[in-house]
Amino acid sequence: MPDYLSVLAALGASLLVLVAVAWAVVLMLLLRGSRSGSTAGRTGRTLSGLPRQRQAAPHVESVELTPAEQDAFAGLVRQLGRH
């Protein structure tokens, strides 16, 4: 060990390298495990972190406008059409 390197710095660097190697090994194992299953066998599995998908589309909402609101909307459309 060099004289300018303290014991704590050497232990910290060793621990950091050890944690990085362990993280890489676990990541490789996780990736290998996700690739090993075929796509045909995974059709029934769902992802637990995602919300359930709707089977049908949401209903359409509509609101009836009063004649004054219709006139205001028509005026707004005319103003935006000029630009």
Rank of each mutant, 00 (worst) to 15 (best):
R52A: 14
D3K: 13
E61H: 01
E61V: 11
R32N: 01
V21P: 00
R45M: 15
H59E: 06
Q53W: 02
T46Q: 15
L11R: 07
L5Y: 13
Q53I: 09
A40R: 06
Q79W: 04
S6R: 12
L8I: 12
G12N: 07
V60E: 05
G49F: 09
A40T: 09
Q53A: 13
V17C: 00
L18D: 00
H59A: 13
G37F: 05
Y4M: 09
W23N: 04
H59T: 05
S14P: 02
L31D: 09
V77S: 07
Q55H: 07
A9G: 12
L29V: 08
A57H: 01
L80V: 03
V21G: 01
V60G: 04
G81Q: 06
A57D: 04
D3M: 13
V17D: 00
T66S: 13
L31I: 01
V19K: 08
V60L: 13
L29N: 06
D3H: 09
M28G: 14
G81M: 03
S48P: 05
A22Y: 03
S48L: 03
V19H: 09
S34R: 04
F73D: 11
L27F: 07
S36M: 02
S34D: 05
V7L: 10
A24K: 11
L16C: 06
L76Y: 08
L47M: 09
P67Q: 09
L50F: 11
D71H: 01
P58I: 00
S34H: 00
D3G: 13
G44D: 15
A24C: 10
S14T: 13
L27K: 12
L29Q: 06
Q53S: 11
L47C: 09
G33Y: 01
